[in-house]
Each structure stands twice: as structure tokens, then as C-alpha cells.
């Protein structure tokens, strides 16, 4: 449900950037979303489409790159891949893993005219 707030946040940044760049319209938006960022990608797409109606980004295509999750495994003392917050360390099986990457929610770049 908070994907609507995220979509509104995205739109605000898009409108600000379009103004700064004197763009007539935004044709493409590239997001980077971490796999552990608690974002439902399909819900975000749905909300994005609703939010951009009648705006400078109305015709924008949305590209979403999902960034992999990483955790710091305390027993191993190293960074390991982490697909979900509740997952154990893929190396040693311990749950003493603190997520350190994959929480990103970023607008990477846009294409404008």
C-alpha cells in the first residue's frame, strides 16, 4: 500500500528535475529498487501509472532494476548474498546476518525531451 506514497515521491522528483532541465516531457524513468526494500514491484508499477496521469511524465516508460540483497554474516565475518531478510547465511546457515545492501529506492536516471 505504501507504494502509492513512493509513486508520489517519484513524481515529485520527476517534476522538479523536468523543471530544472526545461524538459517538455519525460519519456523514460529508470529506478533502482533493492530486493530487501519492502517494495512490491507490480504494485509500484500500478501506482506509478496512476500518479503520472496528466503530468510531464504521463507518457514515460518505467524501467525497474532490482538490486540484489546483501548481508553481513557475523560468524563468517563477511558479506554474503541475501535474497530475503529472514534467510540464513548461504555459506554457514547462521541467522546472524544483518542486511547491509538491497534496501535502495532510487531514481537512477530519466530520459527527457
Amino acid at each position: 500500500m505504501h507504494e502509492m506514497s513512493l509513486a508520489e515521491g517519484i513524481l515529485r522528483i520527476l517534476e522538479d528535475t523536468a523543471r530544472q532541465e526545461a524538459a517538455r516531457r519525460i519519456t523514460r524513468v529508470t529506478l533502482e529498487i533493492g530486493a530487501l526494500a519492502n517494495v512490491e514491484i507490480e504494485a509500484l508499477r500500478f501506482c506509478f501509472d496512476a500518479a503520472i496521469r496528466d503530468t510531464v511524465a504521463a507518457a514515460a516508460q518505467l524501467d525497474i532494476r532490482v538490486l540484489p540483497g546483501h548481508g553481513w554474516c557475523m560468524p563468517c565475518g563477511r558479506t554474503v548474498p541475501l535474497a530475503a531478510l529472514a534467510d540464513p547465511c548461504p555459506q554457514c546457515g547462521s541467522f546472524q546476518v544483518q542486511a547491509v545492501g538491497g534496501m535502495e529506492m532510487r531514481i537512477k536516471e530519466i530520459e527527457i525531451e
Binding site: 513512493l6 515521491g9 517519484i10 515529485r12 522528483i13 528535475t17 532541465e21 524538459a23 519519456t27 529506478l31 529506492m105 532510487r106 531514481i107 537512477k108 536516471e109 530519466i110 530520459e111 527527457i112 525531451e113
Partner: peptide, 18 residues
Amino acid sequence: HSPATRRVAVEADILARN
């Protein structure tokens, strides 16, 4: 394609305003 199309690096956190 319009020749005026260009890319702009934004690199902004979606939650920046919050």
C-alpha cells in the same frame, strides 16, 4: 525518436523528501 531526447542522471532517493 526525437533528436532532442537526452538522459539526465538523477540519482535521487525516492524517500528523500520524507
